[in-house]
Amino acid sequence: MRKLILTLLAGILLTGCGGNDPDAVAEGDRLPPADDPVAWAGRVCSALSLLSASSGPALDPNNPAASKDALARSWADTEQRIGESLRGLDAAGPSPIQGGDDTARQLRDALNGLRGAFADARTELDGIDPKDPAALATRLAAIKTRLDVAHASSALSSMGDNAALNEAVKQASSCAVTAR
C-alpha cells in the first residue's frame, strides 16, 4: 500500500486539487496553536495544494516554436508553484507531531529536487531549435523522461510511516481533497 504522504503529493502534482482551502496560511493569518497536529497537517497539505496541476500547455504540432514557448512557460510556472509550496511549508512552522519535522524536511528536499529538475529542463529546452522538429521531439522525450525520473526518485517513497502524522493528515480538511 502506498504511503499516505506520497499519495497526497503525487495526487497534487499529477491531478491537482481545488479552490478555497480552509487550512491555508495567508500572510498575517493567526495560526492555530502549535500543539494542534491536525491544524499543522492541514497547513502542510495547503502548502502542497499550491502545486495543483494546471491544464497543461497548449501544444500545437504545426507550430513547434509556440509549443516550445508554451512548455517553457508551463515549466517556469511549475517552478514558481514549487517555490510557493516551499514557503508554505516554512509558514506551517514546527511540527507538534514527533517525526513531523523530518517529514517536512523530506518534502522540502523532494520539492527542491523537482524545482531543480524543472529549471534544468527549461535550460535544455532553451537550447533546442524549434525549426528542427525531429530534434525537438527527440530531446523533449528525453527531457520528459528525466522529469519523470526526478519525480520518482525524489525520496518521497520513504515518507508516510508516521501513524500520528497519517492520522492528522486524514483529519485535516485540506488533506481530504487529495487523500481519496
Rank of each mutant, 00 (worst) to 15 (best):
K3I: 04
R73T: 02
S49A: 04
D126Q: 15
A168S: 05
N20M: 13
A172R: 08
A110E: 03
L86C: 02
A66D: 06
D60Q: 03
L4V: 05
A47G: 08
S85L: 04
L125C: 03
R30C: 11
K170E: 13
N20W: 14
P96G: 02
I12G: 13
M1C: 05
L147K: 07
D102W: 12
S54Q: 01
K68F: 07
K144G: 09
G83R: 05
I5R: 06
G19E: 15
L86R: 08
G18S: 15
A92L: 04
T145F: 13
A172P: 01
R2F: 14
A70V: 00
P37W: 06
S67R: 07
A110G: 03
Q106K: 13
N62K: 05
T178C: 13
V25E: 10
A26Q: 06
T178D: 14
R30W: 01
I97E: 11
D35V: 04
A172G: 01
A163I: 03
D21F: 06
R43G: 08
D101W: 09
Q80H: 06
D129K: 01
W40V: 00
L125D: 05
R87F: 01
P37D: 09
A65D: 13
N20Y: 13
R115Q: 15
R43A: 10
Q80P: 06
P94H: 13
A65R: 14
D36N: 14
G113T: 02
A142T: 02
L59G: 02
D90S: 15
Q80C: 09
S174M: 08
I128Q: 10
L51K: 06
I143R: 09
L107G: 01
E167C: 03
G16C: 04
D129M: 02
I5Y: 12
D129A: 04
D126H: 11
L89I: 10
P130V: 00
T15I: 10
A66W: 05
Q171H: 09
A172H: 09
D101T: 02
A164S: 09
D35M: 07
N63Y: 01
A53M: 09
S55T: 15
V177S: 14
E79T: 05
L136R: 04
M1P: 11
G11W: 09
R146C: 08
E79S: 08
L4D: 00
N112T: 05
R146D: 06
D23I: 03
N166I: 00
G56I: 01
Q171I: 02
D36T: 01
G28P: 04
R2W: 11
P32L: 00
L125R: 04
I5K: 09
D126L: 12
D161E: 12
N62Y: 11
P22N: 04
P32I: 01
A172N: 03
S173D: 15
A134N: 12
G88P: 03
S49C: 13
N166A: 08
D23W: 09
A58Q: 15
P22C: 04
I82Y: 11
R115N: 03
D132T: 04
N112R: 13
V25G: 07
A53K: 07
S95K: 00
P64F: 10
